[in-house]
Design a protein around this nucleic acid. Structure first.
Lengths: 246, 246
DNA sequence: GAATTCTTTTGCGTATGCATTGTTGACGGT
DNA sequence: ACCGTCAACAATGCATACGCAAAAGAATTC
């Protein structure tokens, strides 16, 4: 469910929107290829196609009620997004995530997200337009109180995606969303094995406050520490859980 | 020329290499689609297809001696790399680079590259395997002495690409190479309008020394300052030069 | 019984055909 | 003279067809 929404967001950001002609804001027909892309992406993120799963192009085409051509195009895109691997005679394979991958991903996030926070705080009016982030924080706090890990994760995603979308750098946002998608399954998997993220919730709020106050350096540093901690936590959890993930 | 080499490197890093079977290291037939991708990419980076240029799929197919299918696949990949835009009835358009784009790109680089330097310096034996970077530095110094801007730019590219390739994070490397490719033309364009990059050359050497000494924080900070300065320089140059770049 | 080679099958990469859809130009009306 | 409508055309996006190469299986031999 949430994953589907994330998928929409991610590609919504990446697709960059076709140039609108005149004043008609007609959203144009979805197109079979784009549809296949979205559909497959949600299947992967929702773990309906688990890591390591292999499907032939024809299978997928049949399953989606399309021909091989748009499916193939979708697979090419998914491969560039790092979600699948196209192997010459065995169709596509859903890319598994190992501890080493999570380390890479968190190094990237730990670099880009603090930058996004800094950029956001450096805007002319830093406190403006942060409603989304505030709402996400509130949702996290509420989910924490209700001990609803699922809802907490959704709010967490909303916060991080909202942050990079607001920072005004589309490339940075696209990159963050890409690795975020790649690590989606791993986060979901470890959700129930972690202690309640009370600390994370508070840290998010503090970051938001620093941004609103325009304290760019502080926002960056807070975010850095936050990511550092939660990233290390997750990596060690995966390593300890011994899931080589195929 | 240099751009062609860059293209090879970039996709070599991004493509992630097919799974090698057994002990036969046969690189497998290039494949028409991959060939089209490489070919078009070099055309774009070498400015043979200038920014804003529009070509129909059929034109490109004819020009490359292929059918539309592999060309289309190549275009999809190039679109996701941010080099072209596929516009429904007008074929493909080479993505122009404006000052705003350069700002975005340098924000990303200014975030990721210092991280790469830090990672490199944190390795167990930081001084090992830095021959490539040392050679690149030497080439820059030599080119500077000879006042050969072309050669300097090539060495600069070799340094930055080598750095991210060595840092051990393939995702980070891929992202850096992606934006690096996007900004390739802009750098080439402004090459001859800048003062001789004496300062940049020295800064590179200092960063390399810090890495070799294992001083991670210092390496990061030096790199950050370097990028900050040269990025601002380039952006202001582009803004001043008033090239809206279509 | 195991290994090697030949055959068969299967999936992919590319090409081509077709229908959909947007564009462009002209024509007529105001 | 300008604008709106319409029709013909052109390019795309998707479906399908075809040839090739690899993997799996069968048969023969040692």
């Amino acid at each position: 469910m949430t994953a589907a929404a994330v998928a929409r967001l991610s590609q919504g950001g990446a697709v960059t929107s076709a140039p609108r002609s005149r004043h008609t804001e007609v959203p144009r027909a979805p197109g079979a290829a784009e549809l296949a892309h979205a559909r497959l992406k949600t299947l992967i993120l929702d773990n309906a196609l688990p890591p390591g799963a292999q499907r032939l192009e024809s299978e997928l085409a049949l399953q989606l009620g399309l021909s091989r051509t748009p499916v193939r195009e979708a697979l090419v895109r998914l491969q560039q997004e790092g979600l699948v691997e196209i192997t010459p005679r065995h169709g596509m394979r859903v890319q598994p995530i190992a501890a080493a991958d999570m380390r890479e991903i968190y190094e990237v996030l730990n670099s880009l997200e603090p930058t996004a926070a800094e950029l956001l705080a450096r805007r002319p009016d830093p406190a403006a337009g942060l409603e989304r982030l505030d709402a996400a924080c509130a949702a996290m706090e509420q989910a924490l109180a209700a001990q609803d890990r699922r809802a907490w994760a959704a709010a967490d995603e909303a916060f991080h995606l909202g942050l990079v979308e607001l920072c005004g750098n589309r490339r940075l946002a696209g990159m963050v969303m890409q690795v975020w998608d790649q690590s989606h399954r791993a986060r979901m998997f470890t959700l129930h094995q972690r202690p309640l993220p009370a600390r994370s919730t508070a840290e998010h709020r503090r970051v938001l406050d620093a941004i609103a106050a325009g304290e760019a350096e502080r926002a960056r540093e807070l975010y850095h520490r936050h990511r550092r901690r939660s990233g290390a936590e997750l990596v060690s959890l995966i390593e300890r859980s011994g899931v080589a993930w195929l």
